[in-house]
Nucleic acid binder design. Sequence first.
DNA 1: TAGTCTGTTAGACA
DNA 2: CTGTCTAACAGACT
Length: 266
Amino acid sequence: MPELAEVEVVRRNLEQWWIGRQAVDVCLIDGELVDDDDGDALVDVLQRPLRSARRRGKYLSCHFDGQVLVFHFRMTGKIICADCPNPDYARCSWHIPQMGWLVFKDQRRLGSLRRMSSDKFHNYAPLEAMGPEPEDVTVEDIRGACTGRRLLKTALLDQSIVAGVGNIAISELFWRLELAPDIKCGQLTETDWRHLIRELPSYFDEIIEASMSDEIDYIEEGAGDSPFQIYGRGGRNCPRCGSDIQKTRVGGRSSYYCESCQSSTR
DNA sequence: TAGTCTGTTAGACA
DNA sequence: CTGTCTAACAGACT
């Protein structure tokens, strides 16, 4: 569940489920989740009242008095609300009375959970290195960070340039902007740049809205329809012009695009 | 069995 | 120095 939008959905759900409450029980299921000697400290922090849940790029931070827990979900991590502490792939669970078990699930176990003091959090290196959020980024921020020969896709996936953009967002954004999947930074017109900057925040806003669930049981994936127009829809029809959606590889990752709308020659 | 996957990073290479 | 590619992480799925 790993792009900005999905992390933001988790953050909003945690605000509903957890803020002002405290867990009365903790199950640390996967010992490798934390450093060997830090399990007890993690269990202690998880039982303090949650003060706030914040997001920066794809990072989620949970703030307690004096302590912070920082999650990164990588490819398959997520936090759900369940009625037991050990559903499949659970790595750590904590029980909020009247609410249920909050479960950090992570099928591939690439995600991470770090505990640190509030002081340390304020200069936590991975967050310091993070570029501006999509709503704050400017044309100069992006253009200044990449030369004309660089793939736009690669530049946008670089978290130090813009925070939170993932591989799905790239396909969706490029389709909205009618940009070829392998367009280089130097090939964008002034208008393209302006549109990109404008579309970035609105894309995420829309996906967040479409992905939100006010159910207390936060959806497992796949239940509803995909909010995506292009990603994962190879062979189907472009919602705009009806042509076939193609799948290709750019910058080592899959890109979906409409051959007709997103022509390479401009 | 081989290829794939919403992420990140180190190292090889051009 | 720039930028791209691959492998690795670890596991499930097709």
